[in-house]
Design a protein around this nucleic acid. Sequence first.
DNA 1: CCGTATCCATTCCGATACTG
DNA 2: CAGTATCGGAATGGATACGG
Lengths: 173, 173
Amino acid sequence: MVKRTSLKRAECPVARSLDAIGDWWSLLIVRDAFDGARRFGEFQNSLGISKGILTTRLRDLVAQGVLDTVPASDGSAYQDYVLTKKGQDLFPIVVGLRQWGEDHCFEPGEAHSVLVDNETAERVGRLEIRSRSGRAVGWADTTVRKAGTPSPVQRRSAPAKRSRRSASTAAGP
Amino acid sequence: MVKRTSLKRAECPVARSLDAIGDWWSLLIVRDAFDGARRFGEFQNSLGISKGILTTRLRDLVAQGVLDTVPASDGSAYQDYVLTKKGQDLFPIVVGLRQWGEDHCFEPGEAHSVLVDNETAERVGRLEIRSRSGRAVGWADTTVRKAGTPSPVQRRSAPAKRSRRSASTAAGP
DNA sequence: CCGTATCCATTCCGATACTG
DNA sequence: CAGTATCGGAATGGATACGG
């Protein structure tokens, strides 16, 4: 039994978080959920993930309490996957990953997509972490896109491709 | 070849970040680096990871530019692994994971360790994300522990300690 | 003490076919 | 469209033995 050591009972909160959402796909699914995705097919399409994996990932996320399933939305007999409060609280992490990626994982001038959170994009233009004293200790400068912006991908050189539906009222209270 | 799809060339910064540091161990290693770990054995000990895996993870992280190797430190003929600027910029993400874990992955009153960043602990007592307008949009309340605190684990309900002292021996350039 | 190398079980993931 | 079932290849990770 060489089973991968579980971190579920780790005393370190970082380890527990990683145990919950630290796998290859979970945060990408959450990202897409922030982007307004709700349907199985939306996730599958956006991620290029196989159905089987997506099914288990979705189920895990629901079991973790990050996502919840709601009966309908467009009347079809299926389910929508929406972020719970717990899932929405991942927002800072997703933003952090985005900003770190922007800062350190792209060549200067290389094209990349921009922030896709529908709910927050319109009120947040720049994110930073401050200490109690008011001094910034974290990052700064975030590029954000407002919900419903036609081009989902902002290019500096290449053409865009990913299509998107209108944002409207995505996941959220 | 059914190789797992690489996200290295993804246009989404979140995906690229995950590709770089989104695996099972990387962020845990980075966390320990923030905690002051520098030596191979320190990481291995803290993580309970096998040597082989640790070797490759360390090498990957160095290749990614997250860690760097420096010749000595205590005179031994080995190497120390230290965070680069790129690695240090992961701090907000590690803190975010920590806070999310504290908020959502522990039972009320359950014991957990506290923040372990040596360099920042003394100046940061509470982290939050604010929008440009000044309104907080992210989390709040972080418990921090300064370097050298004997007990690494602290009750969640315990009062947050805001002590300060010199950084001393930690990993400080 | 620091790593490398090998073996092997487990898990992950993509492809595909199938049901409703 | 939304999932389930299955297969096979690849990567992961633990244990251990080995060399610097």
